[in-house]
Design a protein around this nucleic acid. Structure first.
Lengths: 200, 200, 200, 200
DNA sequence: TATGAATGAGGATTCATTCAT
DNA sequence: AATGAATGAATCCTCATTCAT
């Protein structure tokens, strides 16, 4: 797919991916042009296409890279830890990602909203399996009486929805909250919400 | 903007708006073509442009129509009703909208994710004012000890995030839950979540 | 070509021709649209096409009507009148036409500049013959010593050029002269010029 | 606006401008198509648009270039020269331009006739100022008794009108004069006319 | 590695004209 | 005599991609 040799190659690839993230996350795949990406990456269009064979290739590379980061926190959930703390830590990590990597979140959101044409398989495969595992863990905790009984799927969706909202709907959130930084108070709210929902 | 006379006009306009909703909600504004909309509406491209002067006009008409429906439930919140019931009813309405009007939700999400270029003003104006009002109501309830103290802004965001997630991330939700209809269990979860968060 | 029956028909035909003159004289044939003409004439597009079968037909009708008015003053030149007075009267009539029918002049100019695709034959036929006649008259006058010897063709061109300039280059003339009405002083200038050129 | 580097760029730009002059001068702005220009320039349409961003840009570039050439002779008028000779030299230069650059003249005429939408400002600014200066010079000459008293504005218009007529109304002039080259006799006529008008 | 040049396939929109009523 | 509806053929312009160097 992408070249992976000298320093300059790596530098340019990184620049392209970063630029691609900027552009694709804002305008979506079809709404973005190679020119935008190339300009932002400081390269000429043909030179950009020397590193990635097509617009699609850049986008796909971004998505692939993104997916790993996306799934990773879920894998870190420890069935032997304290249930409430574990879930709250997971939510916290997701919120941090929304704060520090909002473009990634929006890129992902864009892809899903449009029907996940490029990552549908991952969703139905790896992600589904992962969530199933997590679901088992949560169900185990509930059966053991260590958390309130909850539908594990919807619990996971809730954490995703709430945390990603601050990245994906950033414009709306800030339009409503004005100059107050949403993240200053969001964590507290999330904490409270989960604790209420889960604590026995 | 749009003609508004005879039967055939109304019929075609409606067909165009419906087709536009289909297409725009899936591909976003830039990712959609007039051809797609025209074909789906059963019209030729120039004939479609006989009813709406441009691609943008269709999109704008959809957004405008959508925004009203979007803001309306919030206005229905009754400060003299039972706090928990009022908020749960609101959440329920939002969830119903996600279930029955998922395309509208995705169209809206698309617009917001891309920076709300066309409705930024509404967000900062009418929506912000509305949420501020609601925030006052919620704060009043909390101060009166009728619900647990919560950050009203984040409470509203949470309700939005969770309910809209089922429409906007529909593909992902279904990829994970398989053949089970998410909405069958979502309401129960939402109910439980809000009751835990709010009941004193 | 055009219907010619009832009052209403005549009224509408006249309205169309007048509107066509307005539009065509400003934007040229290709630069004008039937819609512009129809709107200005207070008719619907299809109704306009009920009276004239095509855009071209309106334009042609205008040109034809115009040509007569255009050639007519030349025919009025009287070989038995006073040479200088005759020529000055002719020039005066042309100047008056520029003042009172500038659109007609511009329509004509447009057509000629673009190579006279529609009236080339008239130019090479009727107009040429007319000018030849006039040329004979002028030459006769010169030979009789009643005016200074001049090239009759260029004399005619000069009269055309100078008088039509005030209509065709109206914008430029007014840009340069500011609020002063060019026609107030133009006639005097024209008079002087011709008298100097022609008087023995 | 236009690239300005390598040989091939200069070559293609020149080809485009030349083709644009051909086409625009004949059909006007709206009546011309990019395709016509591209074909005449020996380029594909998108390749043409690689050099100029739009149809308008080509036209504007032509007009800008043209305007300089257009104003220049006027600046050359020398208040310290012999009045009649200076004015006749100016007229001669204008006539030469009509002979050798008729397309430029027609392009200009087209623009003015249609209301000078793109150069109205230049007309009201630079051109007006220039003519005002020239007007002062001519008035000075007249007051000094070195030429007959004339309205300087109309004198200038007359020179413009008569000389440009041979370019702008070329088709008509040739239709009337047949095979005789108008320019062979035009200069003589112009000379005579100005001398009669101006000599004391 | 890098870029200037070129192009085919769209894609939005315009517009003269036709059709049905 | 009039109009609402419809369309095919342009026409301007964009853009991913290729080619030559």
């Amino acid at each position: 797919m992408a070249k992976s040799g000298t320093r300059i190659q790596k530098k340019n690839q990184a620049a392209i991916l970063e630029a691609g993230l900027d552009v694709f996350s804002q305008f979506g795949f079809r709404g973005s042009t190679i020119d935008q990406v190339a300009t932002k990456a400081g390269l000429s269009k043909p030179n950009l296409l020397y590193y990635f064979p097509s617009k699609e290739a850049i986008y796909t590379a971004l998505l692939a890279q993104l997916l790993e980061d996306w799934l990773e926190p879920l894998k870190a959930l420890d069935r032997d830890g304290d249930p409430v703390e574990e879930l709250m830590a997971y939510a916290k990590r997701k919120l941090d990602m929304s704060q520090h990597y909002p473009k990634e979140s929006r890129l992902f959101a864009n892809e899903i909203i449009q029907g996940a044409p490029r990552i549908g398989d991952v969703l139905k495969g790896e992600l589904r399996a992962l969530v199933e595992e997590v679901s088992d863990v949560i169900n185990g905790w509930a059966e053991a009486g260590r958390i309130r009984p909850v539908n594990p799927y919807h619990l996971v969706f809730t954490i995703w929805a709430v945390t990603q909202h601050y990245a994906d709907f950033d414009v709306q959130v800030r339009a409503i909250m004005g100059d107050v930084d949403p993240f200053d108070s969001a964590e507290r709210h999330l904490d409270d919400m989960l604790r209420q929902m889960l604590s026995v």
